[in-house]
Write a protein that binds this DNA or RNA. Structure first.
Length: 571
RNA sequence: GUUUCCGUAGCUCAGCAGGAUAGAGCGUUCGCCUCCUAAGCGAAAGGUCGGCGGUUCGAAUCCGCCCGGGAACGCCA
């Protein structure tokens, strides 16, 4: 049971433990507090079953003892039922407390404020140059960026690194293919698609003519030897690819602090290999150099191939060392598919064995594999959807809906983009990251129910109300004591935001924020539906409700941005 | 085979440092726009929480075994 963590629970657990004297700690009570299954029962509950052991009384008796002894102005009623002690919050003081808190902290409301002076490096997105940017890249990109935003929100300094796959034999292939069949104009015009087409053609033709592979290897060797012609082509291919990736990043509102990819670390590997040798960590196994990890129940980590060339772990180690030196990070996070878990566990261990003190600051954040409508992603069978196309489809659909529902709206394209892209991102980030996600296209592009558009629509709704309430001034406070259940429920959801942010960071789990957004929207829309806000005739109540709307607006806006969605004032 | 992740409503998913009747959304059926954006709100129907054991006052949640699915396991990244 998710324990609620606001100050109310804090003070309550203290006063409860005072009744016990030295027998039970306040923190113990705090951990035991929970939500009753229904609001009809109460707002907060203390199950007394565990206490019955230390106190040697039945839970029912303990609960009823409290019922009589406990007095707290924050609660309108305290009731013992069947071993549970149920508290009903005093709506006025509770709503006031929450709204005041949000109003005081504004957009900082919910921040753990514990990252000051600390640095987090995040390695995410990292597409392979000259390859399509498809739905499979959505996870790392969007989880990675959301984590970055969460850490920034907590006050950390964040370095977002796009560790481009910009080195390797595939470049020999593309260079070869380009020389044989490509043209400058077509690549400039076709962009990544053209590069991919060349790459695909290479593989096809190489089946007939294996000498092409030798040719490609040769071209890559030349590139490694800094051949000027090949280097020029290579840089150009990267440039072409990056141009396209950046379009997608822009739609998502993502910017990176560094695009240092694999090629950047090629000259930084020898030092690490030397250290491995000096520390006698390398073993020769079937010609390859490996670090034996049998003691840790893992297969060996390959450092050098039989031919002496480097491998993925070698590069990752060199990159980590570089980052530790350059950024002096407190945490270095890698967001990749769960399929790479072993790889990360292996080289993290190697880093530890090498004696680097920051080995325990490396974190792998894995996520499940994506399938589309229940079918595996497969480049060969063509079951691949480019992110660009998916976004485009979503934007088109939003545009059509907007034309129907709000034809007079200005700046429609930007809003359609924010909503369309938001729908896809929200859909992705609704799920626990570790689970394999089955991307149901119809659901991802749906705008009703638990969706991004629903959240953005609700946000726009709060904006619209606030705009229309401008004539009543903008310093709204909770002034009416005549507060009902809808208001209280809404305030309760708002009060959970700080602990949700904390868990999202602790668990590297943006979906916790997404889920919170849905709870908040549901509570607000219920409130909106049941209560008149601007049209409320009682002025005090009206101002109170506007204050609550403002608090919702602030928190919902913050939360949306934390999962890479844009705040849509109008929709 | 070894390791690891997952198995909750027809579908997509929440809930898992144990707690009172297992929750959403979609889909189905039915209500609500002379009123602040109906991309909304409400109601009904729908579940032996993969199975069997164990721990516990109490298990979807923790432990063990089994079944089913995915992924990773040496010269790709």
């Amino acid at each position: 049971m998710q324990v609620l963590k606001h100050r109310l629970a804090d003070s309550l657990s203290k006063s409860i433990s005072e009744i016990f004297g030295a027998e039970v700690e306040a923190s113990e009570i705090y951990d035991m507090l929970e939500y009753p299954p229904s609001e009809d029962i109460g707002d907060l509950a203390l199950p007394c079953f565990k206490l019955s052991r230390t106190l040697r009384r039945s839970p029912q008796i303990i609960a009823s003892e409290f019922e009589n002894k406990l007095k707290d102005d924050d609660f309108s009623s305290i009731e013992a039922t069947g071993g549970y002690l149920n508290f009903r919050i005093n709506a006025y003081s509770f709503v006031k407390r929450i709204v005041d808190d949000v109003s005081k902290k504004g957009e900082r409301y919910g921040s753990p404020e514990n990252g000051e002076g600390k640095t987090v490096v995040l390695d995410y997105s990292s597409p392979n140059v000259a390859k399509p940017f498809h739905i499979g890249h959505l996870g790392t990109t969007v989880i990675g960026h959301s984590l970055k935003l969460l850490y920034e929100f907590a006050g950390y300094k964040c370095i977002g690194i796009n560790h481009l796959g910009d080195w390797g034999t595939q470049f020999g292939k593309v260079i070869t293919a380009y020389r044989l069949w490509g043209s400058h104009e077509e690549v400039e015009k076709g962009g990544v698609d053209e590069l991919v087409a060349l790459y695909v053609r290479f593989h096809k033709e190489a089946e007939e003519d294996p000498t092409l592979n030798d040719k490609a290897r040769e071209e890559f060797s030349k590139l490694e030897a800094h051949d000027p012609e090949n280097t020029k082509l290579w840089k150009w291919f990267i440039d072409i690819s990056l141009r396209e990736y950046k379009k997608t990043y822009k739609m998502l509102g993502i910017e990176f602090d560094s695009y240092n990819g694999e090629s950047f670390y090629t000259d930084k590997m020898p030092e690490q290999i030397q250290i491995l040798k000096d520390k006698h960590l390398l073993e020769l196994d079937d010609g390859a150099s490996v670090v034996n990890l049998e003691k840790w129940n893992m297969p060996p980590c390959l450092i050098l191939k039989r031919d002496g060339s480097t491998l993925y772990p070698t590069r990752d180690i060199a990159a980590a060392v570089y980052r530790a030196r350059t950024y002096n990070f407190d945490k270095c996070i890698y967001v990749t598919s769960a399929g790479q878990s072993l790889h990360f566990a292996q080289w993290f261990k190697v880093v530890e064995l090498m004696g680097y003190p920051w080995y325990n600051k490396l974190v792998h954040v894995p996520y499940g594999t994506v399938s589309i409508n229940g079918a595996k992603l497969a480049t060969r069978s063509g079951n691949v959807i480019l992110l660009r196309d998916l976004f485009e489809q979503a934007i088109e659909k939003v545009t059509a809906i907007m034309e129907e529902k709000n034809p007079s709206l200005k700046g429609r394209y930007d809003i359609a983009e924010a909503v369309g892209v938001g729908a896809v991102v929200f859909y992705y980030l609704s799920n626990n990251r570790i689970r394999d996600i089955n991307f149901m296209l119809d659901d991802a592009l749906s705008f009703e129910g638990n969706t991004g558009p629903y959240a953005q629509y609700t946000y726009a709704r709060t904006c619209s109300i606030l705009e229309k309430s401008a004539e009543y001034g903008d310093d709204f406070n909770v002034v009416s004591e005549d507060i009902g259940e809808d208001e209280k429920s809404l305030a309760k959801v708002i009060s959970e935001f700080p602990s949700k942010v904390e868990s999202a960071i602790e668990q590297y789990e943006p979906s916790i924020v997404t889920r919170f957004i849905l709870d908040l929207c549901a509570a607000f829309n219920r409130f909106y539906h049941d209560c008149k806000i601007i049209n409320c005739e009682d002025e005090k109540l009206r101002d109170t409700r506007i204050a609550l709307t403002r608090a919702t607006n602030t928190v919902l806006g913050t939360a949306l941005e934390l999962i890479c969605l844009k705040k849509t004032e109008k929709i």
